[in-house]
Structures are given as structure tokens and as C-alpha cells.
């Protein structure tokens, strides 16, 4: 039996609607500019273990009411774009979609986290639903850094923690730098064709 009980079907419906929405954005962009800004996308319903960990970490009770009030990423989408311009294009399409309400937008690309993490987070709700969910948007480079950093963070007994944190931050800055160089190359090629 799932921790979500009867409401699992509701979350699954959000996943389906979200998938359709993203696919529509891809189709629209291919139609207008010939190429999709989205490299790939993933989605998940938060697993029980991760959900309970998050509640415990924030000292919140493990009840249905607490889950639906406090946790905004029961359903999560991650959209990976080829270039930073693509992240903005897709985010604007989501924000202006008439079936979606934006609850919160956190721009960690303009304002990276101190550890170097970059991504654009949108907490949204479908007009016909009361369950908020999260859409994360980032480039391939931002995604590869976040995935590797996530793995390293869970390694036990890290020695020289300060050094590792500083070096990881530098990797994030270097990868972001490469991202912006690739963007300029892409723009130059696009302009010439």
C-alpha cells in the first residue's frame, strides 16, 4: 500500500498532464524554429523513503495533511535543455501557459547557491488541481554537475571537506562558463544561417 493512499491516482494524473504539456512545448518549438530546446526530460513521484526523510529533517509530522501542506515536490519534473537560452524559452512557455498557476519561482541560475548549484525551480499548480508540484529546468552542464555533486555528497567520511567543497564550486563555475561559451557559439552559427 502506497503512503499516498487513495491520492496516488491524483499524483499519477498530474504526471500524465505534465508529460503532455512538455511534449506540446517541444512540438510547438520544433514547428516554429525547427529544433527543440529540450534535450530530454524526466519525472517521478516522490518515493516513500525520500518523503519520510524530508518530513523528519524538517521536524514535520508524517500525516497526509502535513504531506500535502508542506511538501511541494510530491511530483517532480526535470527538464534538461541544450542551452541556457532554451531554459528561458521553456520557462516562459510554462509561465504563460493558461492551464498553469505559478506559486513560486526560484532562479538559481541568476543567483546560484553558495555551493555552485544552478537550476531554475518552478513550484506550480494545474488550474484544475490543488496539489502543487515542482518543475526544475537546467542545461546539460548544470545537470551533470548536480548529478555528480549529489553522488559525492552522500559518500561517507569525506576528508578535507572544505577543500572538496571549494573545488566542486570551482567545477560548477567552470561548467557554467563552458555553457555560456557554447551559447555564444550556438548564437553565432544561428545568426549566420
Amino acid at each position: 500500500m502506497s503512503i499516498y493512499g487513495d491520492r496516488l491516482a491524483q499524483l499519477e494524473a498530474i504526471v500524465e498532464k505534465g508529460k503532455t504539456l512538455i511534449q506540446e512545448i517541444i512540438n510547438e518549438e520544433v514547428k516554429t524554429s525547427g529544433i527543440s530546446p529540450i534535450e530530454h526530460f524526466k519525472y517521478r513521484i516522490k518515493c516513500e523513503e525520500s518523503l519520510i526523510n524530508k518530513l523528519n529533517l524538517r521536524c514535520l509530522p508524517v500525516t497526509m495533511e502535513s504531506i500535502y501542506t508542506n511538501i511541494h515536490d510530491l511530483v517532480g519534473f526535470r527538464i534538461i535543455c541544450s542551452y541556457t537560452s532554451g531554459v528561458r524559452t521553456v520557462a516562459n512557455k510554462i509561465i504563460s501557459n493558461e492551464n498553469i498557476d505559478i506559486i513560486l519561482s526560484k532562479d538559481y541560475i541568476k543567483h546560484p547557491k553558495p555551493n555552485g548549484y544552478r537550476s531554475l525551480h518552478l513550484i506550480v499548480k494545474l488550474k484544475d488541481s490543488d496539489v502543487p508540484f515542482e518543475i526544475q529546468l537546467r542545461t546539460i552542464a548544470m545537470d551533470s554537475w548536480a548529478s555528480l555533486e549529489h553522488q559525492l555528497k552522500y559518500k561517507r567520511e569525506i576528508k578535507h571537506k572544505d577543500l572538496i567543497v571549494a573545488e566542486l564550486k570551482m567545477c560548477a563555475d567552470e561548467m557554467s562558463s563552458t555553457d555560456l561559451t557554447m551559447q555564444a557559439i550556438y548564437d553565432l552559427i544561428k545568426e549566420e544561417n
Binding site: 543567483h111 546560484p112 570551482m170 563555475d173 567552470e174 557554467s176 562558463s177 555560456l180 561559451t181
Partner: peptide, 8 residues
């Protein structure tokens, strides 16, 4: 002020 980046 709040972020940094590496240049070549």
C-alpha cells in the same frame, strides 16, 4: 556580488 564564473 553573489556568484562567480571562470574565464579562459
Amino acid at each position: 556580488k553573489e556568484s562567480s564564473i571562470m574565464l579562459s
